[in-house]
Design a protein around this nucleic acid. Structure first.
Lengths: 226, 226
DNA sequence: AAATCATGTTAACGACCTGTTAAATATGAA
DNA sequence: TTCATATTTAACAGGTCGTTAACATGATTT
Protein backbone atom coordinates (compact mmCIF):
# COMPACT_ATOMS: atom_id res chain seq x y z
CA UNK A 1 0.00 0.00 0.00
CA UNK A 2 1.25 3.42 -0.93
CA UNK A 3 0.22 5.73 1.87
CA UNK A 4 -0.44 9.28 0.76
CA UNK A 5 0.30 12.02 3.25
CA UNK A 6 -0.56 15.71 3.07
CA UNK A 7 2.02 17.75 4.96
CA UNK A 8 1.29 21.44 5.63
CA UNK A 9 4.29 23.20 7.15
CA UNK A 10 5.29 26.84 6.65
CA UNK A 11 8.91 26.39 7.66
CA UNK A 12 10.35 25.40 4.28
CA UNK A 13 13.49 23.67 5.48
CA UNK A 14 11.73 21.70 8.24
CA UNK A 15 9.02 20.74 5.75
CA UNK A 16 11.59 19.47 3.33
CA UNK A 17 13.39 17.43 5.96
CA UNK A 18 10.18 15.73 7.09
CA UNK A 19 9.04 15.07 3.54
CA UNK A 20 12.41 13.67 2.59
CA UNK A 21 12.62 11.41 5.63
CA UNK A 22 9.11 10.09 5.26
CA UNK A 23 9.62 9.40 1.57
CA UNK A 24 12.73 7.45 2.43
CA UNK A 25 10.49 5.28 4.58
CA UNK A 26 8.13 4.57 1.72
CA UNK A 27 5.38 7.12 2.10
CA UNK A 28 4.19 9.44 -0.63
CA UNK A 29 4.27 12.99 0.72
CA UNK A 30 2.74 16.17 -0.73
CA UNK A 31 4.16 19.29 0.89
CA UNK A 32 2.33 22.63 1.07
CA UNK A 33 3.90 25.62 2.75
CA UNK A 34 0.81 27.49 3.79
CA UNK A 35 -2.71 26.70 4.98
CA UNK A 36 -4.41 28.07 1.90
CA UNK A 37 -2.59 25.84 -0.56
CA UNK A 38 -2.95 22.95 1.88
CA UNK A 39 -6.72 23.22 1.69
CA UNK A 40 -6.92 23.44 -2.07
CA UNK A 41 -4.50 20.55 -2.44
CA UNK A 42 -6.62 18.48 -0.08
CA UNK A 43 -9.75 19.21 -2.05
CA UNK A 44 -8.17 18.19 -5.32
CA UNK A 45 -6.71 14.89 -4.11
CA UNK A 46 -7.18 11.98 -1.75
CA UNK A 47 -4.96 11.47 1.28
CA UNK A 48 -4.70 8.82 3.94
CA UNK A 49 -3.38 11.18 6.58
CA UNK A 50 -2.93 14.94 7.07
CA UNK A 51 -0.11 16.43 9.09
CA UNK A 52 -0.75 20.08 9.90
CA UNK A 53 1.50 22.56 11.60
CA UNK A 54 -0.63 24.52 14.04
CA UNK A 55 1.34 27.74 14.00
CA UNK A 56 1.37 29.20 10.52
CA UNK A 57 1.25 32.89 9.56
CA UNK A 58 -1.88 33.45 7.48
CA UNK A 59 -4.05 30.43 8.16
CA UNK A 60 -3.35 28.27 11.20
CA UNK A 61 -3.56 24.47 11.33
CA UNK A 62 -6.83 24.35 13.25
CA UNK A 63 -8.58 26.45 10.60
CA UNK A 64 -7.26 24.20 7.89
CA UNK A 65 -8.45 21.18 9.86
CA UNK A 66 -11.94 22.64 10.18
CA UNK A 67 -12.14 23.11 6.45
CA UNK A 68 -10.81 19.64 5.77
CA UNK A 69 -13.44 18.23 8.11
CA UNK A 70 -16.16 19.89 6.05
CA UNK A 71 -15.27 17.59 3.21
CA UNK A 72 -14.01 14.55 5.08
CA UNK A 73 -14.91 13.52 8.63
CA UNK A 74 -12.79 10.39 8.57
CA UNK A 75 -9.28 11.28 7.45
CA UNK A 76 -6.90 11.27 10.44
CA UNK A 77 -5.28 14.60 11.23
CA UNK A 78 -2.01 14.91 13.13
CA UNK A 79 -1.24 18.36 14.51
CA UNK A 80 2.29 19.59 14.93
CA UNK A 81 2.60 21.98 17.89
CA UNK A 82 5.30 23.87 19.70
CA UNK A 83 6.06 22.79 23.23
CA UNK A 84 4.89 26.12 24.60
CA UNK A 85 1.37 25.58 23.34
CA UNK A 86 -1.37 25.01 25.87
CA UNK A 87 -2.21 21.32 25.92
CA UNK A 88 -5.88 21.97 26.57
CA UNK A 89 -6.33 23.75 23.30
CA UNK A 90 -4.62 21.05 21.29
CA UNK A 91 -6.43 18.26 23.06
CA UNK A 92 -9.76 19.90 22.39
CA UNK A 93 -9.02 20.03 18.72
CA UNK A 94 -7.47 16.63 18.44
CA UNK A 95 -10.44 14.96 20.13
CA UNK A 96 -12.40 12.47 18.12
CA UNK A 97 -9.58 10.28 16.97
CA UNK A 98 -7.03 12.86 15.90
CA UNK A 99 -3.65 13.25 17.56
CA UNK A 100 -0.85 15.76 17.97
CA UNK A 101 2.90 15.72 18.20
CA UNK A 102 5.14 18.29 19.90
CA UNK A 103 8.20 19.91 18.36
CA UNK A 104 10.91 18.89 18.33
CA UNK A 105 10.24 15.29 17.39
CA UNK A 106 12.17 12.55 15.68
CA UNK A 107 10.98 11.06 12.43
CA UNK A 108 10.74 7.71 14.20
CA UNK A 109 8.26 9.21 16.60
CA UNK A 110 6.28 10.68 13.74
CA UNK A 111 6.26 7.40 11.91
CA UNK A 112 4.93 5.62 14.97
CA UNK A 113 1.94 7.96 15.15
CA UNK A 114 1.29 7.52 11.47
CA UNK A 115 1.33 3.75 11.80
CA UNK A 116 -1.08 3.87 14.73
CA UNK A 117 -3.51 5.80 12.55
CA UNK A 118 -3.14 3.47 9.63
CA UNK A 119 -3.63 0.38 11.73
CA UNK A 120 -6.75 1.93 13.16
CA UNK A 121 -8.24 2.65 9.76
CA UNK A 122 -7.17 -0.49 7.91
CA UNK A 123 -8.08 -2.82 10.77
CA UNK A 124 -11.73 -2.86 9.87
CA UNK A 125 -12.68 -0.92 12.92
CA UNK A 126 -16.24 0.20 13.39
CA UNK A 127 -15.30 3.42 15.16
CA UNK A 128 -15.27 5.56 12.06
CA UNK A 129 -18.60 4.21 10.88
CA UNK A 130 -20.48 4.93 14.09
CA UNK A 131 -22.26 8.24 14.47
CA UNK A 132 -23.97 9.65 17.51
CA UNK A 133 -27.16 11.48 16.51
CA UNK A 134 -28.97 12.94 19.49
CA UNK A 135 -30.52 9.97 21.26
CA UNK A 136 -29.54 7.68 18.40
CA UNK A 137 -26.43 5.77 17.57
CA UNK A 138 -26.07 4.88 13.93
CA UNK A 139 -23.61 2.25 12.74
CA UNK A 140 -23.37 2.61 8.99
CA UNK A 141 -21.39 -0.60 8.45
CA UNK A 142 -23.71 -2.76 10.55
CA UNK A 143 -26.79 -0.93 9.31
CA UNK A 144 -28.14 -0.42 12.78
CA UNK A 145 -29.90 2.54 14.29
CA UNK A 146 -29.92 2.21 18.06
CA UNK A 147 -31.91 4.17 20.54
CA UNK A 148 -32.44 3.55 24.26
CA UNK A 149 -33.13 -0.16 24.26
CA UNK A 150 -34.39 -0.44 20.70
CA UNK A 151 -32.40 -1.46 17.64
CA UNK A 152 -33.69 -0.94 14.10
CA UNK A 153 -31.94 -2.55 11.17
CA UNK A 154 -31.78 -0.35 8.10
CA UNK A 155 -31.54 -1.46 4.51
CA UNK A 156 -28.34 -0.82 2.59
CA UNK A 157 -29.75 2.20 0.73
CA UNK A 158 -31.30 3.73 3.82
CA UNK A 159 -27.94 3.34 5.47
CA UNK A 160 -26.09 4.81 2.49
CA UNK A 161 -28.24 7.92 2.52
CA UNK A 162 -28.12 8.40 6.28
CA UNK A 163 -24.39 7.74 6.29
CA UNK A 164 -23.80 10.38 3.66
CA UNK A 165 -25.87 12.88 5.62
CA UNK A 166 -23.91 12.05 8.76
CA UNK A 167 -20.58 12.54 7.06
CA UNK A 168 -21.65 15.96 5.78
CA UNK A 169 -23.41 17.51 8.73
CA UNK A 170 -21.41 20.70 8.28
CA UNK A 171 -22.97 21.62 4.96
CA UNK A 172 -25.98 21.26 2.73
CA UNK A 173 -25.75 18.25 0.43
CA UNK A 174 -27.02 19.03 -3.06
CA UNK A 175 -29.68 16.67 -4.37
CA UNK A 176 -27.47 15.69 -7.26
CA UNK A 177 -24.58 14.96 -4.90
CA UNK A 178 -26.65 12.46 -2.94
CA UNK A 179 -27.98 10.90 -6.13
CA UNK A 180 -24.53 10.56 -7.61
CA UNK A 181 -23.08 9.11 -4.42
CA UNK A 182 -25.84 6.64 -3.59
CA UNK A 183 -27.57 5.87 -6.89
CA UNK A 184 -24.69 6.64 -9.23
CA UNK A 185 -26.93 8.68 -11.45
CA UNK A 186 -29.29 11.64 -11.40
CA UNK A 187 -32.69 11.78 -13.06
CA UNK A 188 -36.21 12.80 -12.16
CA UNK A 189 -37.39 9.40 -10.91
CA UNK A 190 -34.29 8.69 -8.85
CA UNK A 191 -34.85 12.10 -7.30
CA UNK A 192 -38.36 11.14 -6.27
CA UNK A 193 -37.04 7.85 -4.96
CA UNK A 194 -34.60 9.74 -2.82
CA UNK A 195 -37.45 11.82 -1.42
CA UNK A 196 -39.14 8.59 -0.39
CA UNK A 197 -35.99 7.57 1.45
CA UNK A 198 -35.70 10.92 3.17
CA UNK A 199 -39.29 10.50 4.27
CA UNK A 200 -38.60 7.04 5.66
CA UNK A 201 -35.48 8.16 7.50
CA UNK A 202 -37.39 11.07 9.03
CA UNK A 203 -39.96 8.61 10.33
CA UNK A 204 -37.20 6.52 11.93
CA UNK A 205 -35.65 9.63 13.47
CA UNK A 206 -38.96 10.99 14.83
CA UNK A 207 -38.18 9.55 18.23
CA UNK A 208 -35.75 12.42 18.87
CA UNK A 209 -37.12 15.75 17.58
CA UNK A 210 -33.68 17.31 17.98
CA UNK A 211 -32.44 15.26 15.03
CA UNK A 212 -33.79 16.58 11.75
CA UNK A 213 -33.20 16.17 8.06
CA UNK A 214 -33.79 19.71 6.85
CA UNK A 215 -34.69 20.51 3.25
CA UNK A 216 -33.11 23.48 1.50
CA UNK A 217 -35.58 24.26 -1.22
CA UNK A 218 -34.15 23.77 -4.66
CA UNK A 219 -30.77 22.75 -3.28
CA UNK A 220 -30.78 19.66 -1.13
CA UNK A 221 -30.71 18.34 2.43
CA UNK A 222 -28.74 18.56 5.61
CA UNK A 223 -28.83 16.59 8.82
CA UNK A 224 -29.12 18.99 11.73
CA UNK A 225 -28.97 18.30 15.44
CA UNK A 226 -30.32 21.07 17.64
CA UNK B 1 -5.64 -24.39 23.18
CA UNK B 2 -7.67 -22.17 25.40
CA UNK B 3 -5.68 -18.99 25.93
CA UNK B 4 -6.14 -17.48 29.36
CA UNK B 5 -5.93 -13.71 29.64
CA UNK B 6 -5.77 -11.58 32.75
CA UNK B 7 -7.37 -8.19 32.12
CA UNK B 8 -6.90 -5.45 34.72
CA UNK B 9 -8.99 -2.39 33.89
CA UNK B 10 -10.59 0.01 36.35
CA UNK B 11 -13.18 1.38 33.93
CA UNK B 12 -15.88 -1.23 34.43
CA UNK B 13 -17.75 -0.71 31.19
CA UNK B 14 -14.62 -0.63 29.03
CA UNK B 15 -13.36 -3.72 30.81
CA UNK B 16 -16.58 -5.55 30.15
CA UNK B 17 -16.58 -4.60 26.48
CA UNK B 18 -13.03 -5.85 25.98
CA UNK B 19 -13.69 -9.06 27.91
CA UNK B 20 -16.86 -9.71 25.97
CA UNK B 21 -15.24 -9.08 22.61
CA UNK B 22 -12.23 -11.22 23.35
CA UNK B 23 -14.39 -14.07 24.61
CA UNK B 24 -16.36 -13.91 21.40
CA UNK B 25 -13.09 -14.49 19.65
CA UNK B 26 -12.36 -17.59 21.64
CA UNK B 27 -10.18 -16.40 24.52
CA UNK B 28 -10.81 -17.03 28.17
CA UNK B 29 -10.68 -13.69 30.01
CA UNK B 30 -10.53 -12.95 33.73
CA UNK B 31 -11.39 -9.33 34.51
CA UNK B 32 -10.18 -7.47 37.60
CA UNK B 33 -11.13 -3.87 38.17
CA UNK B 34 -8.20 -2.74 40.28
CA UNK B 35 -4.51 -3.43 40.52
CA UNK B 36 -4.74 -5.07 43.93
CA UNK B 37 -7.20 -7.77 42.88
CA UNK B 38 -5.28 -8.14 39.63
CA UNK B 39 -2.16 -9.13 41.53
CA UNK B 40 -3.85 -11.60 43.82
CA UNK B 41 -5.73 -13.15 40.91
CA UNK B 42 -2.47 -13.53 39.04
CA UNK B 43 -0.81 -15.24 41.98
CA UNK B 44 -3.63 -17.74 42.37
CA UNK B 45 -3.85 -18.75 38.71
CA UNK B 46 -1.91 -19.24 35.52
CA UNK B 47 -2.26 -16.87 32.58
CA UNK B 48 -0.83 -16.80 29.09
CA UNK B 49 -0.92 -13.05 28.82
CA UNK B 50 -1.68 -10.01 30.98
CA UNK B 51 -3.35 -6.82 29.79
CA UNK B 52 -2.90 -3.97 32.27
CA UNK B 53 -4.37 -0.51 32.19
CA UNK B 54 -1.59 1.88 33.17
CA UNK B 55 -3.73 4.56 34.71
CA UNK B 56 -5.66 3.15 37.63
CA UNK B 57 -6.53 4.96 40.86
CA UNK B 58 -4.92 3.04 43.74
CA UNK B 59 -2.30 0.87 42.10
CA UNK B 60 -1.13 1.70 38.58
CA UNK B 61 -0.36 -0.81 35.84
CA UNK B 62 3.40 -0.46 36.10
CA UNK B 63 3.36 -1.35 39.78
CA UNK B 64 1.20 -4.37 39.08
CA UNK B 65 3.61 -5.38 36.34
CA UNK B 66 6.59 -5.12 38.68
CA UNK B 67 4.90 -7.44 41.16
CA UNK B 68 3.89 -9.87 38.46
CA UNK B 69 7.49 -9.94 37.28
CA UNK B 70 8.64 -10.93 40.75
CA UNK B 71 6.81 -14.19 40.30
CA UNK B 72 6.98 -14.67 36.54
CA UNK B 73 9.65 -13.24 34.23
CA UNK B 74 8.15 -14.75 31.11
CA UNK B 75 4.47 -13.93 30.88
CA UNK B 76 3.89 -11.25 28.22
CA UNK B 77 2.42 -8.00 29.48
CA UNK B 78 0.47 -5.59 27.31
CA UNK B 79 0.01 -2.09 28.71
CA UNK B 80 -3.01 0.03 27.89
CA UNK B 81 -2.18 3.73 27.91
CA UNK B 82 -3.95 7.01 27.23
CA UNK B 83 -2.89 9.06 24.25
CA UNK B 84 -1.53 11.88 26.40
CA UNK B 85 0.94 9.64 28.20
CA UNK B 86 4.61 10.31 27.68
CA UNK B 87 5.89 7.67 25.33
CA UNK B 88 9.32 7.56 26.94
CA UNK B 89 7.90 6.28 30.17
CA UNK B 90 5.84 3.56 28.49
CA UNK B 91 8.63 2.51 26.22
CA UNK B 92 10.97 2.16 29.17
CA UNK B 93 8.59 -0.16 30.91
CA UNK B 94 7.54 -2.13 27.89
CA UNK B 95 11.12 -2.85 26.97
CA UNK B 96 12.23 -6.43 27.11
CA UNK B 97 9.53 -8.02 25.05
CA UNK B 98 6.43 -6.36 26.41
CA UNK B 99 4.26 -4.06 24.36
CA UNK B 100 1.70 -1.29 24.81
CA UNK B 101 -1.43 -0.16 23.06
CA UNK B 102 -2.89 3.35 23.07
CA UNK B 103 -6.53 4.21 23.75
CA UNK B 104 -8.71 4.25 21.80
CA UNK B 105 -8.03 0.98 20.01
CA UNK B 106 -10.13 -1.52 18.15
CA UNK B 107 -10.47 -5.09 19.31
CA UNK B 108 -8.94 -6.20 16.01
CA UNK B 109 -5.84 -4.23 16.91
CA UNK B 110 -5.75 -5.74 20.38
CA UNK B 111 -6.16 -9.25 19.05
CA UNK B 112 -3.28 -8.66 16.64
CA UNK B 113 -0.96 -7.77 19.51
CA UNK B 114 -2.13 -10.75 21.52
CA UNK B 115 -1.51 -13.11 18.63
CA UNK B 116 1.97 -11.69 18.11
CA UNK B 117 2.79 -12.52 21.72
CA UNK B 118 1.33 -15.97 21.60
CA UNK B 119 3.02 -16.90 18.37
CA UNK B 120 6.28 -15.71 19.87
CA UNK B 121 5.88 -18.02 22.85
CA UNK B 122 4.05 -21.03 21.41
CA UNK B 123 4.85 -20.71 17.75
CA UNK B 124 1.32 -21.25 16.53
CA UNK B 125 -2.05 -19.60 16.38
CA UNK B 126 -4.06 -20.09 19.48
CA UNK B 127 -7.57 -18.90 18.83
CA UNK B 128 -9.93 -21.29 20.47
CA UNK B 129 -11.93 -23.44 18.13
CA UNK B 130 -14.65 -24.13 20.67
CA UNK B 131 -17.63 -21.80 20.76
CA UNK B 132 -20.44 -21.68 23.24
CA UNK B 133 -23.72 -20.97 21.47
CA UNK B 134 -26.63 -20.86 23.88
CA UNK B 135 -27.27 -24.47 24.84
CA UNK B 136 -24.80 -25.70 22.22
CA UNK B 137 -21.09 -26.17 22.21
CA UNK B 138 -19.53 -26.15 18.78
CA UNK B 139 -16.00 -27.38 18.16
CA UNK B 140 -15.00 -26.21 14.72
CA UNK B 141 -11.85 -28.32 14.56
CA UNK B 142 -13.58 -31.53 15.64
CA UNK B 143 -16.73 -30.74 13.65
CA UNK B 144 -18.95 -31.46 16.60
CA UNK B 145 -22.07 -29.69 17.75
CA UNK B 146 -22.91 -30.75 21.30
CA UNK B 147 -26.04 -30.16 23.25
CA UNK B 148 -27.20 -31.62 26.56
CA UNK B 149 -26.36 -35.28 26.03
CA UNK B 150 -26.50 -35.26 22.23
CA UNK B 151 -23.59 -34.89 19.82
CA UNK B 152 -24.02 -34.21 16.12
CA UNK B 153 -21.09 -34.42 13.74
CA UNK B 154 -21.09 -31.76 11.06
CA UNK B 155 -19.58 -31.99 7.62
CA UNK B 156 -16.51 -29.92 6.82
CA UNK B 157 -18.46 -27.29 4.89
CA UNK B 158 -21.20 -27.04 7.48
CA UNK B 159 -18.50 -26.52 10.04
CA UNK B 160 -16.69 -23.95 7.91
CA UNK B 161 -19.82 -21.88 7.55
CA UNK B 162 -20.83 -22.13 11.19
CA UNK B 163 -17.27 -21.42 12.29
CA UNK B 164 -17.12 -18.30 10.18
CA UNK B 165 -20.41 -17.11 11.62
CA UNK B 166 -19.13 -17.77 15.14
CA UNK B 167 -15.95 -15.82 14.59
CA UNK B 168 -17.91 -12.82 13.34
CA UNK B 169 -20.81 -12.62 15.72
CA UNK B 170 -20.30 -8.91 16.20
CA UNK B 171 -21.02 -7.97 12.62
CA UNK B 172 -22.98 -8.88 9.53
CA UNK B 173 -21.07 -11.16 7.17
CA UNK B 174 -21.66 -10.26 3.54
CA UNK B 175 -22.80 -13.11 1.29
CA UNK B 176 -19.74 -12.67 -0.86
CA UNK B 177 -17.47 -12.75 2.18
CA UNK B 178 -18.80 -16.14 3.21
CA UNK B 179 -18.59 -17.43 -0.34
CA UNK B 180 -15.04 -16.20 -0.76
CA UNK B 181 -13.97 -17.65 2.60
CA UNK B 182 -15.66 -21.05 2.34
CA UNK B 183 -16.07 -21.72 -1.39
CA UNK B 184 -13.26 -19.53 -2.69
CA UNK B 185 -15.51 -18.03 -5.29
CA UNK B 186 -18.79 -16.18 -5.70
CA UNK B 187 -21.45 -16.94 -8.28
CA UNK B 188 -25.18 -17.46 -8.40
CA UNK B 189 -25.19 -21.22 -7.82
CA UNK B 190 -22.66 -21.16 -5.01
CA UNK B 191 -24.88 -18.53 -3.43
CA UNK B 192 -27.86 -20.88 -3.60
CA UNK B 193 -25.71 -23.65 -2.23
CA UNK B 194 -24.82 -21.46 0.71
CA UNK B 195 -28.51 -20.83 1.33
CA UNK B 196 -29.01 -24.58 1.53
CA UNK B 197 -26.26 -24.78 4.13
CA UNK B 198 -27.73 -21.95 6.14
CA UNK B 199 -31.02 -23.77 6.06
CA UNK B 200 -29.42 -26.97 7.33
CA UNK B 201 -27.54 -25.19 10.10
CA UNK B 202 -30.74 -23.51 11.20
CA UNK B 203 -32.38 -26.90 11.46
CA UNK B 204 -29.53 -28.16 13.66
CA UNK B 205 -29.75 -25.05 15.83
CA UNK B 206 -33.54 -25.23 16.22
CA UNK B 207 -33.16 -26.93 19.59
CA UNK B 208 -32.27 -23.58 21.18
CA UNK B 209 -34.46 -20.76 19.82
CA UNK B 210 -32.11 -18.20 21.36
CA UNK B 211 -29.49 -19.07 18.77
CA UNK B 212 -30.39 -17.69 15.37
CA UNK B 213 -28.77 -17.15 12.01
CA UNK B 214 -30.35 -13.87 10.97
CA UNK B 215 -30.55 -12.78 7.35
CA UNK B 216 -29.88 -9.17 6.38
CA UNK B 217 -31.71 -8.81 3.11
CA UNK B 218 -29.40 -8.12 0.21
CA UNK B 219 -26.35 -8.14 2.47
CA UNK B 220 -25.69 -11.37 4.29
CA UNK B 221 -26.00 -13.22 7.59
CA UNK B 222 -25.13 -12.90 11.21
CA UNK B 223 -25.24 -15.37 14.09
CA UNK B 224 -27.17 -13.83 16.96
CA UNK B 225 -27.71 -15.13 20.46
CA UNK B 226 -30.51 -13.44 22.36
C1' DA C 1 -53.82 35.35 -5.94
C1' DA C 2 -52.81 32.26 -9.43
C1' DA C 3 -49.63 29.51 -11.58
C1' DT C 4 -45.71 26.73 -11.34
C1' DC C 5 -42.42 24.01 -9.51
C1' DA C 6 -40.30 21.43 -5.42
C1' DT C 7 -41.06 18.43 -1.75
C1' DG C 8 -43.77 15.21 1.64
C1' DT C 9 -46.19 11.05 2.09
C1' DT C 10 -48.54 6.81 1.20
C1' DA C 11 -49.59 2.78 -1.25
C1' DA C 12 -49.06 -0.73 -4.79
C1' DC C 13 -46.39 -3.15 -8.17
C1' DG C 14 -42.73 -5.89 -9.68
C1' DA C 15 -38.06 -7.35 -9.55
C1' DC C 16 -35.13 -9.65 -6.96
C1' DC C 17 -33.64 -12.18 -2.68
C1' DT C 18 -34.23 -15.91 0.48
C1' DG C 19 -36.11 -20.43 2.66
C1' DT C 20 -36.96 -24.91 1.90
C1' DT C 21 -37.44 -29.38 -0.09
C1' DA C 22 -36.24 -32.69 -3.35
C1' DA C 23 -33.79 -34.52 -7.15
C1' DA C 24 -29.37 -34.82 -9.51
C1' DT C 25 -24.61 -35.14 -9.34
C1' DA C 26 -20.11 -35.61 -7.31
C1' DT C 27 -17.11 -37.70 -3.94
C1' DG C 28 -15.14 -41.28 -1.50
C1' DA C 29 -14.91 -45.70 0.97
C1' DA C 30 -15.47 -50.66 0.81
C1' DT D 1 -17.83 -51.68 -9.17
C1' DT D 2 -21.61 -50.47 -5.48
C1' DC D 3 -23.19 -48.02 -1.77
C1' DA D 4 -23.31 -44.18 1.33
C1' DT D 5 -22.77 -39.57 1.99
C1' DA D 6 -21.84 -34.73 0.71
C1' DT D 7 -22.73 -31.09 -2.22
C1' DT D 8 -24.89 -28.78 -6.02
C1' DT D 9 -28.73 -27.70 -8.89
C1' DA D 10 -33.59 -27.18 -9.65
C1' DA D 11 -38.06 -25.73 -8.51
C1' DC D 12 -41.39 -23.32 -6.06
C1' DA D 13 -43.16 -20.47 -2.37
C1' DG D 14 -42.84 -16.45 0.19
C1' DG D 15 -40.83 -12.23 1.53
C1' DT D 16 -38.42 -7.71 1.10
C1' DC D 17 -37.14 -3.56 -0.87
C1' DG D 18 -36.75 0.08 -4.33
C1' DT D 19 -39.34 2.40 -7.72
C1' DT D 20 -43.19 4.49 -9.52
C1' DA D 21 -47.51 6.73 -9.37
C1' DA D 22 -50.73 9.55 -7.29
C1' DC D 23 -52.10 13.04 -4.47
C1' DA D 24 -51.16 16.55 -0.77
C1' DT D 25 -48.65 20.33 0.82
C1' DG D 26 -45.32 23.96 0.66
C1' DA D 27 -42.30 27.48 -1.71
C1' DT D 28 -41.39 30.76 -5.27
C1' DT D 29 -42.42 33.50 -9.13
C1' DT D 30 -45.54 36.12 -12.01
Amino acid sequence: MNTKILLVEDDASLGFVIKDNLEMRGYHVTLCNDGESGETTFHQNTFDICILDVMMPRKDGFTVARNIRKKDQQVPILFVTAKSMLEDKVEGFSAGGDDYITKPFSVEELQMRIEVFLRRSTGKDSVDTVFKLGKFEFDSSNLTLRTEGQVRTLTQKESDVLGLLCKNRERVLKREEILKAVWGDDDYFLGRSMDVFISKLRKYLRYDPAVQIVNYHGIGFRLEIK
